[in-house]
Each structure stands twice: as structure tokens, then as C-alpha cells.
Simulated assay, not measured.
Amino acid sequence: MISVLQFGGSNCDRDAVRALAHLGVDAERVWFEDGLPEETDGIVLPGGFSYGDYLRAGAMAARAPVMREVRERAANGTPVLGICNGAQIGCEAGLTPGAFTTNASARFQCEHVHLRVENADTPWTAAYDEGDVVMFPIAHGEGRFEATDEELARLDEEDRVLFRYCDSAGNVTDAANPNGSKGNVAGVLGERDTVAVLLPHPERATLPDLHVGTDGQGVLRGFSA
């Protein structure tokens, strides 16, 4: 069973459960104060505005007691996927390097973006080929990925960048970068490739009846890999 953690202010937890169910993956919402069920086989940190994004997006949720359980499960190989606010929580909790901060535009951005698959040899990207261009929606005000030059170089060297913002032809350019993320980074891996965070929303590009494409299915299939 995939546990979709619900914090106060989460608003994409139902979306994640429904998208996973569409793919035949058993998923349930879990209130963060209740802790992770013993039968948890995977964890989603969903999007939203946990704790109203006070202090910094994800900062308070990252310090909730349940996140100690998440880190322990992640260290033992349990798949963990952080999406949007969940990505911010994941970074704040130390599941992945770097941080997400205020968009270069200093405004909330809600639009569809193109992403280039940088590493197809992970559970989250096995459904794609390296260099594939996919389209997911974004909806965030603090999605700009920041890391030191050394951290970014290490992520590249270790093939831990999952996606980069690009144009429809796969060109990684400043113009295709919606939020000013360093190196156009849209998603990264943790120390294990079973842990990933990304700002775009694959669960919103999964259900055919939404008529916005189904490119996101490949990411969520990482839970059944």
C-alpha cells in the first residue's frame, strides 16, 4: 500500500490517490499525526501548502515527527516521491540535496511546462528514454531549485538529475526555465534512486479524462516497478 501523507494544508493528496488507483496501485491518504502504517510499501509527499508555507515552503512539515519515519523507511529502500510542496518538504528534511525557493518572477506560476528526461535508469523514469520530452503542469510560488555549484556538479556526475526544464524540442534554455531553477533542474534523486523529488505534477498528467496528456503516468509507475 502506498501511503500518501496528508499534512494540514495539503491539497493534492486526493489527486495522487486517484492517479495511482488509475494505474492499479493501491494507495491511501494517511494523516501525518497518525504515523506511517506498518503495511506501507511506498510514500508520496503530495503538493499543497503544508502549514500555510509559513517560514519557508515545506520547512515546518519537514520537522513533523512522521518525517523521521519517512527518512528511516527511505534509508531502508522504501520508495518515496515528493511532488511540489512534497519536494520542498523532502529537501527540507534532507531526503535530497538543494533547496526550493521563491520563483525568479516572484509570483505564483501555474502552467504546463516541458521537461527533458535526464536519467531513464531509475524507477521513476524507466518508462521513458533518456532525452525524451514530456509535459507536466506546474503550480508553485517557491519552485526555484538552488544548490551550490559543487552540489549541482555532484548531482550531474552521479546522474541524480531526473528532469530539466526545456522547450518542446528538448533544448535546455533560460527561456524554457519557468522559475529560475539553477541548471534548469526540475527534479532530483536522493542518495538512493528510490527517493525522488520534483516540482512539476505528474499526478495531474495521468488521468486521460482530464484531457491534458498522460505523460505523468511514467513517474507514478515507479511505485509498481
Rank of each mutant, 00 (worst) to 15 (best):
D215A: 15
F108A: 00
G187K: 09
S168D: 14
A87R: 03
P208F: 10
L207Q: 00
L189F: 04
A186G: 09
N184W: 00
N76E: 14
A169K: 12
V185Y: 06
C84E: 03
D132L: 01
E146S: 10
F136M: 01
R192L: 15
Y165R: 09
P200G: 03
T148V: 08
G86W: 04
V219E: 03
E158G: 07
K182I: 01
L95Y: 03
T125Q: 03
L207F: 00
D159N: 11
A99D: 02
E72W: 00
P79K: 08
S168A: 15
L115R: 09
N179I: 07
R107E: 11
L207E: 00
E191M: 11
S181A: 13
Y128M: 02
A126T: 04
V80Y: 02
E158S: 12
R154E: 13
E157F: 02
A74K: 01
G216R: 01
N76M: 05
Q88V: 11
E72P: 06
Y165Q: 11
D167G: 09
V185I: 12
T101N: 04
A196P: 12
A106D: 11
P137S: 02
S168C: 10
A186M: 08
E150R: 14
R73V: 03
S181V: 01
T214L: 09
A75M: 09
F163G: 05
R160I: 02
A99N: 04
L189P: 12
G187Q: 05
T102W: 00
G98C: 09
H211F: 13
E191C: 06
I138K: 08
Q109I: 15
A106M: 13
D156Q: 15
D149S: 12
C166R: 12
A176F: 02
E203H: 11
G141Q: 02
N184Q: 01
N171Y: 07
D167W: 13
V219L: 12
A106Y: 04
G190R: 07
D174Y: 00
A196F: 01
N179E: 07
E157M: 05
D156C: 06
F108I: 01
A176I: 02
D132Y: 07
L115G: 12
G183E: 03
V185W: 07
A186V: 07
V133G: 11
H140M: 08
A139D: 06
G131N: 04
C84R: 01
L152V: 13
V212L: 09
R144Q: 13
C91Q: 15
P79V: 11
R192S: 15
E72T: 14
T125E: 01
F108S: 01
T96I: 06
V185T: 06
A120T: 04
L210Q: 07
V188L: 08
A104K: 12
N103R: 08
V113A: 09
V195D: 01
I89M: 04
G82L: 05
Q88A: 10
V185S: 05
R107P: 00
I138F: 06
R192W: 10
D193Y: 13
S168Q: 13
A75P: 05
P137A: 00
D209I: 07
G180H: 04
E130S: 06
H114Q: 10
R192G: 14
A153R: 13
R116C: 02
H211Q: 13
A99C: 08
H201S: 03
T125C: 12
D156Y: 04
D167E: 11
M135V: 14
A205N: 02
L81P: 05
L155A: 05
A196E: 02
